[in-house]
Amino acid sequence: MRLTRFLLRRTAQGILVVWGVITLVFLLRFITPGSTIDFVAPLDASPELRQRLAEDLGLNKPIYVQYADYIVNLLQLDMGNSLLKGRPASDVIFARLPATLELAIAATIVAILFSIPLGVISATRRHQPVDYGATGFSLIGISTPNFWLGIMLILIVGVNLGWLPTSRRIIGFGPALELLIFEGRTIGIQVWFEHILLPSITLGTYFTALITRLTRNGMLEELGQSYVEVTRAKGLPETLVKYKHVLRNTMIPIITVLGLQMGTLIGGAVITESVFNWPGLGTLIIDAINSRDWPLIQGSLIVIGVGFVVINIVVDALYMYFNPQVTFE
């Protein structure tokens, strides 16, 4: 009940932000030097042809009419036609979306899988070699540019050792899973895994380092609280004390920071895709900007903005789950 009310409120706020995003993205075209028609029309186009093209695209209308048209079209999921590919921009974008989602989810899994145990071990064995190792790793991890880490992984694992492929995504997770279920062949999943492994380590390392650091510091702080002594005094096993009570309270600041860092995850995905030629939204948006493909630029920015708002709502809901006192007033 409380959660439903919260979600409704938060969604309403989210819609306002998305409207802001759409407006900003729309205005982006007007602060860009050079007129849009110059990028669309062929170099040798006659003035009449340019005129007709501009009319076709609605570029002659007053700005508020263009804005209204834009919003109305967007509500019908019509982002216009990609100037380069001649297909609806939304088709192009949604075809690329799964690749980026897979990468972001895989990186998050990598990060959570390694960071929380590492942080807990580090905090419970303070000033032991394992703690120094973990602390050193997290310092280097948050200081390394992920694109360089990716290039180093390509150099060592791909080029020198030749263990893993270093670019492209041969098969998506969906088709790979279908292959496994309907034909019982594991080759699809295997190829998918080999290709996503290096990119997800590249994208996930920063977050592994960050969460390790947060978990360690949070655990140390919580372990000094009096309630820990009480649960111990009640005779609860040490493992239960650490993993259930202390870790649960440590999760609250971790989730706060993760929420604030989601932009880093998406930005990191853009550059990781570029390093590994991963056919996702990131490589798409860079291509679109370089060729001034307006519908594609605007569409991708809006999809990223909406995705970001949705992720933040989910993070807030998680926050509420871990910290029942929060009311979001």
């Binding site: 998305v18 802001g20 995003v21 932009g263 930005g267 990191g268 853009v270 990223i304 970001f308």
Partner: peptide, 8 residues
């Protein structure tokens, strides 16, 4: 402003 990842 925060709804756009800084790099993007």
């Amino acid at each position: 402003m925060l709804a756009f990842p800084a790099l993007v």
